[in-house]
Simulated assay, not measured.
Amino acid sequence: MTSFPSPAAIPEDDGGRRHGEYKVPGGKLIVADVEVVDGALAAVSISGDFFLEPDEALLDINRSLTGLPADTGAADLAAAVRAALPEDAVLFGFSADAVAVAVRRALAKATGWGDHHWNIIGPSVLPTHVNVALDELLTEEVGAGRRNPTLRFWDWEEPSVVIGSFQSVRNEVQPEGVSRHGISVVRRISGGGAMFMEAGNCITYSLYLPQTLVDGLSFADSYGFLDAWVMAALEKVGINAFYVPLNDIATDQGKIGGAAQKRLANGGMLHHVTMSYDIDADKMVEVLRIGKEKLSDKGTTSAKKRVDPLRRQTGLARAEIVAAMMEVFTERYAATPAELTEAELDAARERVQAKFGTQEWLHRVP
């Protein structure tokens, strides 16, 4: 099970030195050393390999945090830092928000990748409805502490369209194309757009994590933070990928994937990504309604040009790319192999019957 210090387990006023670190994605390392005295931050010392001008601004940052209640949220910590900085201050490689994350980690209110024991579940063929149900179930399990934070790769056989939680079936799919090609239409719990998925044409994975891992990060920043390992894996197979805000993954040849998230009330969080490998673009436009507004927003006039398969850019088999991704994640986060339990699979199938396979859920947005 996950092992990291819970906030409630740490004495509020022990006066002991607390240490937290945060590496800004694409930026610098921020280190926070603090004490808690009478419920407030004391002896605050921020350090790191960042750049800051003028030098005296570092003292301003430390003073701005000293005396704040130890349970101050990340947004208020960052606001205090920003308010204390002189107008001419230049922060390079970090930000007030990054300082807040480091402080929260020092207080065990936020966690880092290394604070968790990660599991990784390789792809196994399951019905798309079951894959979607597992996303909800395993997110709940991680939030409740019954399962370690986990990376799971999907696999499936039946052609499917998976629509976002807030999308309208009527507005997103072409009934004639769905019927002609035998497409299953499934609604997931996260927002975002529709995904056209045939066996072997996409790479899809889900991360189940505690929200403490993204404490202090904006929604926008959390996407790139959670997928930094993916960028490294793609680089390993010869692809220079980057995020296009909010949730698209692209290369200089076009979009290759998109991410979506869902945060649950019990503290669990789902972050999942689908990347195109070898999509039949002709069939896709027969199945999905891809409007002119969406195309123009992506800077293209053709739906086919938006699909830029990984197969063409890498020349590798889909299994080889998945293997590279699993290898990078394992090396970075010391992840250990795991499997879905029979109890989890049974519970997911029950959710298909009760929720994800019902017309009420599928058509909950008219």
Rank of each mutant, 00 (worst) to 15 (best):
S168E: 04
R187H: 10
Q174I: 07
V173F: 01
R147M: 14
E158C: 04
G191H: 08
N171P: 00
R147G: 07
E158W: 06
R170C: 05
E141I: 07
L134E: 02
V142T: 08
V169A: 11
T139S: 03
V169M: 14
G164L: 07
A144V: 06
A133T: 08
N171D: 15
V169H: 05
T139D: 01
V142E: 03
R170T: 13
G164D: 12
P175R: 13
I189H: 05
R147N: 12
Q167R: 05
R187G: 11
H181L: 15
R187I: 06
G192V: 09
W154H: 12
S165I: 07
V162T: 15
V162N: 03
W156C: 02
V142N: 00
E136A: 04
A133Y: 03
S184H: 09
R147E: 03
N131M: 03
E158H: 12
S168G: 04
D155R: 04
Q174P: 00
R180P: 03
R187K: 14
G143R: 05
R188P: 08
V169W: 11
V142F: 04
S160Y: 15
S179Y: 07
E176D: 14
E140N: 03
V130E: 10
E140W: 13
S179E: 15
R147V: 13
V161P: 03
P159S: 11
V173C: 08
V132F: 06
N148F: 04
R188C: 01
V130Y: 09
Q167C: 08
S160R: 07
V186S: 00
Q174H: 06
V185A: 02
L134T: 01
G145F: 00
S179L: 04
G177D: 10
P149W: 15
R147S: 06
R152M: 09
V185K: 10
N148P: 14
I183C: 03
G145M: 09
Q174L: 11
W156G: 03
V161L: 11
E172D: 15
R180S: 11
V169E: 06
P175E: 15
P149C: 08
G182I: 12
E136S: 09
I163Y: 04
V142G: 02
Q174C: 13
V185W: 11
N171T: 04
L137R: 08
P159F: 01
P149G: 06
S160D: 08
S179V: 00
H181G: 04
N131K: 10
N131H: 09
G191V: 12
L137D: 12
P149Q: 12
R170G: 14
D135K: 15
V186K: 11
D155W: 11
Q174G: 04
D155V: 08
D155S: 10
P175T: 02
G145S: 13
S168Q: 11
H181T: 00
V162I: 15
N171Y: 00
L134H: 09
D135I: 03
R146P: 09
T150Y: 00
V173K: 04
V178W: 14
V178A: 12
V162W: 07
R170P: 01
F153P: 01
R170Q: 13
S179T: 13
N148I: 08
V130R: 00
L151E: 07
W156R: 01
S184C: 09
L138H: 11
G145K: 02
R180C: 05
